[in-house]
Amino acid sequence: MQLVVARVGRAHGIKGEVTVEVRTDEPELRLAPGAVLATDPASVGPLTIETGRVHSGRLLLRFEGVRDRTAAEALRNTLLIAEVDPDATPEEPDEYYDHQLMDLDVVTKDGAEVGRITEISHLPSQDLFVVERPDGSEALIPFVAEIVVEIDLEEQRAVIDPPPGLIDDRAARDEVADGHSVASRDAENAPSGEEA
């Protein structure tokens, strides 16, 4: 199975290094020197990582055969793709690969159907499940322990305990009708950043 693990950014310096936008929770494994990565577009690769280092909070990579700024800049926006065993799991028990979470049914603790995960959105502060509701609308569920209380891969479901208004529009309308500000309520319940 192939997974996108990074996107090449701009060139850094004059010796062929590039910045990368990391899209894996295991960069030390997927983006280590010696790793051979497929690319999108395919005509650019495969690329072999020669060196990697962190500079000012950003990962910098140099690929074999890329020796100057011009060659590095030509790689900009290239997606780096790793071959991953589909049965492999992350080392941490609370972590999951995106492909493990895709298409899981989402239900509340009391068993009410919410929808199906169609996308995982990786934001700087937290990850979000993009859930397609039975009526075709979408719900965004923060992937934090306070809300996503269980991931059951055998049963292919994610169990959530959503705060009022997260998935139930009626609860939000009731709060407005009661004279409470939905925006301030949402701010009080904003989840803290936690990456899974």
Rank of each mutant, 00 (worst) to 15 (best):
L166V: 13
R67P: 15
V107F: 10
E91P: 03
T39I: 05
E119V: 12
D169Q: 07
V131F: 04
V131M: 06
P93W: 06
P163L: 08
E21I: 08
Q156I: 07
P93Y: 02
A38H: 00
E195A: 06
V66A: 02
E21Q: 15
R58T: 10
Q100S: 03
V8Y: 05
D25G: 15
H55C: 07
L3D: 14
T108P: 15
G34S: 05
V18W: 00
E95D: 09
K109S: 15
E146Y: 07
E21M: 09
R170N: 09
H99Y: 12
D178P: 03
R76N: 02
T70W: 07
T118A: 10
G115V: 06
L61A: 11
V4K: 09
V22K: 10
E21V: 10
S121C: 04
V159E: 09
D178C: 05
G111Y: 04
I151D: 06
G45Q: 03
S125P: 02
P162R: 04
A11P: 03
D105L: 13
D103V: 03
R30Y: 11
E155T: 03
R116P: 00
D174M: 14
R173Y: 03
D98C: 03
V44H: 04
A112W: 02
P33A: 08
E195H: 14
E17G: 02
G34F: 03
P162I: 08
A183M: 11
V44A: 10
A38D: 07
